[in-house]
Design a protein around this nucleic acid. Sequence first.
DNA 1: TAGATTGTTAATCGATTAACAATC
DNA 2: TAGATTGTTAATCGATTAACAATC
Lengths: 223, 223
Amino acid sequence: MKPVAGESKPIPLSVVRRLTKYLALIQGLKGEGVEWVSSQELATALGTTSSTVRQDLSHVDFYGISKRGYATEGLAKVLSGLLGADSTWRMVVAGAGNLGRALALHEEFPRRGFIICGVFDVDPRKIGKKIGRLTVQGMKELPAVVGREKVDMGILAVPSAAAQPAADLLIASGIRGLLNLTLTHVVAPRHVPVVASRIVASVLELAHAVTFGSVLTAASRNR
Amino acid sequence: MKPVAGESKPIPLSVVRRLTKYLALIQGLKGEGVEWVSSQELATALGTTSSTVRQDLSHVDFYGISKRGYATEGLAKVLSGLLGADSTWRMVVAGAGNLGRALALHEEFPRRGFIICGVFDVDPRKIGKKIGRLTVQGMKELPAVVGREKVDMGILAVPSAAAQPAADLLIASGIRGLLNLTLTHVVAPRHVPVVASRIVASVLELAHAVTFGSVLTAASRNR
DNA sequence: TAGATTGTTAATCGATTAACAATC
DNA sequence: TAGATTGTTAATCGATTAACAATC
């Protein structure tokens, strides 16, 4: 049984990553009217084992019921809370290139409570341009906006060479977390978590897997 | 000592991921004229330990030299070869929304030998539109293009609900690997590796880290 | 009730870190 | 030479899988 109060221990990162997948899947099922889901069903849909699913969910303050599984509604609610997907987060994008632009316009973000409230660039030709309802601002404006609009997290979508300076500026402005889309490893103080969503690196990883075959044991399952 | 011929054993995915980081870093150093780098230097730059770096590089057919470290030029060459970054890869993008468009225009891809040779969408309003030098084509054209242009890998940048059908189409067309940018888990046969570059999931992961503090022990180091 | 599915403990597996002889 | 840094073996740590009593 899980300790109730006090948040107990931190959830391992590997588990948190899978929890985001469970949440996405369960929200879909809930939308289809499915009320119950078993650990085995979750496992096959996600290419893992029922044992892993149950082990993962033991970190969460929610219980399944023998013979029926987990109530999609309740589980979605608890996972949303745990992952912060039920609250609103304010974000800025550093870099108004193609990638920055795409993220600023990405519909999945507002849909899940992530509000983009500013896009910044150093290029004077980009400053003043419209991206959806936002206007690209100069990097110099960033600290003021982060402070005034209580921005929580920043997205790094600048060229590799500008990654660390842009990160430093965001951190100095008081940002609480960074999503790094550049190829460069970014260094941050311990209290500012950095998550790398390495698109180009992923393609390299894929190229390796294609060349050498079945390396991605966990990722490519079934069928 | 490593076995020379026959490729020996597959390199663990965790190691491959770090190899992509070493490569990016070393290419940068090489550009700055740095000729030698030690395992300790690589480690501090990437927030890991020198032990891990040496262990990782033991999977690679390249040797350092005591007291000097690794020759950046040679190591970059070997890593490039191993990760397929020295050959050319042909790719298509499924989905001509903001994200698909950004990836089709992303300069980092051609720079690293990943050639985007087609963008596809189901939306008739998008078909025919120009994205850089490419014209958006209907999804129906995809199999013919993949066959004719010998496309290696596909990028999934469609809405979540369309992810699996689009993946199935790509796979049926003979694609050899998939980069999945959607929130949905995609199922593929064993011989088609799928790498997920989960942008939205990464933001959820980040939201969790910001809420509960130092979870990302490995990612947020130094300073 | 009988059977399915849970939560949890124990066993296995793999990845990271430490240690150190070899060597430039 | 003396000291730094490698490659590799062994020890530790953490994550996944297996197993099973509890229970709906």
